[in-house]
């Protein structure tokens, strides 16, 4: 008999799920993620850690096993964030897959620093096939190359805010019952309307704060003058 204890905490729009599995005898267990959103598993060498896939975890519990993962889903979208869907006696089958090799022996691809400056950093495909942001965007640097326009992460965020604003404007402009019903369905239901409103309030604050910071930085950028020729002479 395997018992499962779940605990969730939410921070910055991400739900962190902690699982504690207990079994007196060694048992092969499959735990499925139940919340309404992607599962972000722990990773080793860039691939999901042993036993993890996009649906949950599979492995042997002998005594106590603590696990954790993240998800963008709201913890209230299911009664329990994860549950045991299968238990069976453990088998001796070794898991030989490319992912196991990468975890065990390390990735053979060149490190980021080996790639010439100015070459866009590669994106990493997540387990569900979606791509996470490029490393340079996350780090906020540009690998030494001069960037024209805002970095991709900022552009993506602004595009998302614009999409939410479009939805909100559709909702606000609905004058007939049919229009309103279609607009509500378009954002995913009445509950989503509430969360859209909250998200837009947060977007508004973030945009104002960003605008203040942008103005300040733009003023400083215009005011400062690098004595290029003098420094070149000194060098």
């Amino acid at each position: 008999m395997v018992s499962l204890d779940c605990h969730t905490t939410t921070a910055g729009g991400v739900t962190l799920v902690t699982l504690r599995l207990e079994s007196e005898a060694a048992t092969h267990v499959r735990v499925a993620h139940r919340l309404d959103g992607a599962l972000w598993p722990p990773r080793r060498q860039g691939v999901p850690a042993a036993g993890w896939d996009k649906n949950g975890f599979e492995g042997v519990v002998d005594g106590t096993l603590a696990l954790g993962y993240a998800t963008p889903a709201d913890p209230d979208t299911a009664e329990q964030p994860a549950r045991i869907v299968e238990t069976r006696p453990p088998s001796d089958d070794g898991d030989l897959s490319p992912e196991t090799l990468i975890r065990e022996f390390g990735a053979g691809t060149p490190p980021r620093d080996a790639v010439s400056p100015g070459v866009p950093a590669t994106t990493v495909a997540d387990v569900d096939g979606t791509e996470t942001g490029s490393e340079s965007a996350v780090r906020g640097d540009d690998g030494g190359g001069r960037r024209e326009g805002p970095p991709p992460a900022v552009t993506a965020w602004l595009a998302a805010v614009e999409r939410r604003l479009g939805d909100a404007e559709n909702l606000a402009s609905a004058t007939s019952l049919d229009d309103a019903t279609a607009a509500v369905a378009g954002v995913g239901g009445a509950e989503e309307v509430q969360s859209l409103q909250e998200q837009l309030a947060a977007d508004g604050e973030a945009l104002r704060a960003l605008a203040r910071e942008c103005d300040e930085l733009a003023d400083r950028a215009e005011a400062v003058e690098v004595p290029v020729e003098t420094l070149a002479r000194l060098a």
Binding site: P98, T109, P110, R112, A114, S116
Partner: peptide, 14 residues
Amino acid sequence: SLAGARGTDPTALC
């Protein structure tokens, strides 16, 4: 190119 190598998914080789 190293950038090309870095952009690959080695698990797709099989």
